[in-house]
Amino acid sequence: MTVPGASDPSGAPPEAMPVRGPALTRRLLAQPRAVLGLALLTGLFLLAFAGPHLARWDWQQTDFTALREPPSAEHWFGTTASGRDVFALTVRGLQKSLLIGLSVAVLSTGLAALVGMVAGYAGGWADRVLMGVTDLLLVLPAFLVLAVLGPTLGSAWPLLVPALAAFMWMVTARMVRQATISLKEREFVLAARCMGVSPARVLVRHLLPNLGSLLIIDGTLHVGAAVIAESGLSYFGFGVRPPDSSLGTVIAEGAAAATTFPWLFGFAAALLVLLVLAVNLVGDGLRDALDPTGGGGVR
């Protein structure tokens, strides 16, 4: 009957389970980890978009007087072998990582929501076809395909966004489909349908809001995954290509000489790790804030 610590079915009840709006913000801010993640993210955003205006050197310029110079007042993160300013290159890479990460996350999560909800709600043929495509994409070696497409994508880096998104929605789509199917069976959806509420209205009024938590959490975690994927591709020369700069290319260039010239590798690597960490912290915090039964929360 009464499970200790669980909500009690008759008495005046605990806080409502699903949270939105101000309550969500409050809960999120109650978690040190999420606050840390948000602060980090804000800092990185400022650095990425205000940084270029503060630095003296542009990422395209070359300082022939300073080759492989350690960090100094002139070159904050030092210079590369060809005399380019590491700070400018890194900050440009960071900008790109942020933009790519966010847009890939939005695009892939949106696609996942669409495919998953339609497949789950419609069932039948639509479901079979959509899930077939999902299975196929899961079997297709994504990195390989992206690498093969690399020369085409590298020439115009915004093309990386749809390409990455195309390989990141499948797992979420399956989860959304599963959740949609179980929501469809839930009594409140059944009740709505039996009241004569139209299918479109059921999707928008009942299913989408209740899938919200899942989508928000997954979307956030996709940002981190997309950032890693982009930098990984660029690291191996399949993504953003020199002379343009990404965190991946800067790291690839600096990795070989990491012992002797640590600034070539260290700053970009640290920023990359911080960025992914920040996003993951926020995502994990959101998970706890949105779904108090999901483990880490107070029980």
């Binding site: 389970m17 699903p18 009594e187 409140f188 059944l190 709505a192 009024r205 809001p209 209740n210």
Partner: peptide, 8 residues
């Protein structure tokens, strides 16, 4: 609890 949409 199951038959009422928790978000409404």
């Amino acid at each position: 609890l199951a038959s009422l949409d928790p978000l409404m």
